[in-house]
Design a protein around this nucleic acid. Sequence first.
DNA 1: TTGTAGGCGTTATCAG
DNA 2: CTGATAACGCCTACAA
Lengths: 334, 334
Amino acid sequence: MSTMLDVAKLAGVSTATVSRVINSPETVRVETREKVARAMKICRYKYNALARGFVTKKSNTIGLIIPTINNPVFAESTSGVQDYADQRNIQVILGNTYYRYEKEESLVQTLREKQVDGLLITSTNPRSAVIKNLIDEGFPFVLLYSTIKKGVLSAVGIDNYQGGYQATDHLVKLGHERIGMAAGSFSISDRSFQRWHGYRQCLKDHNIAYDRDLLVQSDYSLTGGRDSVKKMLSATNPPTAVFCSNDYLALGAMKGARELGYNLPEDLSIVGFDDVQIASYVIPELTTIRQPAYEMGKLGAELLFQCIKKQTKPVQLMLESSLIVRDSTTRAPG
Amino acid sequence: MSTMLDVAKLAGVSTATVSRVINSPETVRVETREKVARAMKICRYKYNALARGFVTKKSNTIGLIIPTINNPVFAESTSGVQDYADQRNIQVILGNTYYRYEKEESLVQTLREKQVDGLLITSTNPRSAVIKNLIDEGFPFVLLYSTIKKGVLSAVGIDNYQGGYQATDHLVKLGHERIGMAAGSFSISDRSFQRWHGYRQCLKDHNIAYDRDLLVQSDYSLTGGRDSVKKMLSATNPPTAVFCSNDYLALGAMKGARELGYNLPEDLSIVGFDDVQIASYVIPELTTIRQPAYEMGKLGAELLFQCIKKQTKPVQLMLESSLIVRDSTTRAPG
DNA sequence: TTGTAGGCGTTATCAG
DNA sequence: CTGATAACGCCTACAA
């Protein structure tokens, strides 16, 4: 593998000049520029971005930490950050935590050792030690799908409480009074916890007694949704509607209900959260709370670059979420 | 940010020793080891993996190039890759080509400049210049979702021709004679092309005339599938069944058919390709050709590491694909 | 078991 | 506009 030195020798110039034709061609005479270009061709010269990063202390790489790329909503935000990074010629290293805190911890460390310029994190817990530590050390990062509304860190998210409230309110207005919630475990997702708060408050505001048996927590998976709903439905006095804390769970819930012989939506109304692409491709089309995942990724990335350049104070961006009414919810039976 | 030198000074040892406690602790006396550990704590020392990569010429990073992370099948193989890489303490940089060749080209270049140790590529065209070039220069890489069966490169894939044949055969056996194909554009996917070959051969083997109007190519998207099927269905003499070259298209096709008032599966049988997770969560559950995406990613990564260590000759691994019959296909009407 | 010293490929500073 | 040259942080013979 040839280096700048090889090119320089061959072109009869110094390495400094070669470096210049690469980084600021306009500062070198056209003639020499071409001479160097020719030499590079001959040497089959390949630029070494690692060496560059080593001296400039900028790797032009950012780390993206998410729970799992298999949830389409994270795939969407991921492409948002990739697209933004791409247009700035930045690469992104992707890491899955699978909702495990230790993994989040180790990923942060590894990525920092790799000298990423910044971190985009969808954290299981925004108040954890990893995050605190990042703040203390002034390392550039921004939280995605954040539940944080103020403080000394940058984040972008939506109002999860409100989303939960909206979803539940929709169900209440349809006449439902037994409303279950299939939630992602609160221990692995603060978002889920916030949504539950909204759900609960809405129930309260409508004088509907809260029944703790109607809350089932599970891991955030299709099977988790299926099992949760089955559990609820097999209890005495089952719900007529269920709010799922994401679409992924909701899709699973649909399957679970059907396996128990329920007709959808007549026998059970279901509302999800996220509005992933396929939500409107299933039958019945899923009523859900839309959150702008792609934009969140894009915006988060943009914010991160501002952090890296230290040209911004900490801000918490709250994006709009909205209820999308489709066919999976209907009036309460009877 | 403190360096090894700071630590060394503080501990009263040389940088070599510090380096040793990091990379081969067993070669240094317990006492000094602890002394160094303490010093690292005090300095809040952070290891610089970039500098290390610079000297060892190993970045412990690989590049993963896929069409788009938004297709769940690629998300699955991606997590296969990540999981394997993770257990070897390797990071993966992810890049989307969006099925564009130029993007594939530029990604390969950028990632090589970043000194990735190897590349995992889901190529739009395995016979293109980028790939040839990689071979010529002996750069370690392996193709994922490969259609290549022999040659001087490593790859893992399935027999797409056979998959296409199987899918079509299933439809024929159900009595269908007007069988359409909603394909991903051949220009962006050799896989789609192979599947079409299988489809066509199967038709031929059963003496069913090939009707070119029944082939509709589109980009690989939900809307692509929807539009394709609508186009077919609105023609004179529409098909009674359609083979979609992936599940993503199939999901879109379901929606398209319904929008035209078709009942599924009575009025139209649909078979997909991939068997993504949600395929069995939609109604009717999707009949499809299963390909082991997660395993493919994992295996591809494993193969890549062997390539990197140069402890393997080029091999093309062909994984099993199989027809999964579910509810989206039924006997031809009439 | 530990230290010395050279080198990895590039950029940046300062002259010229 | 171009050239010398000193970093950058770490690894690795080689020596002690």
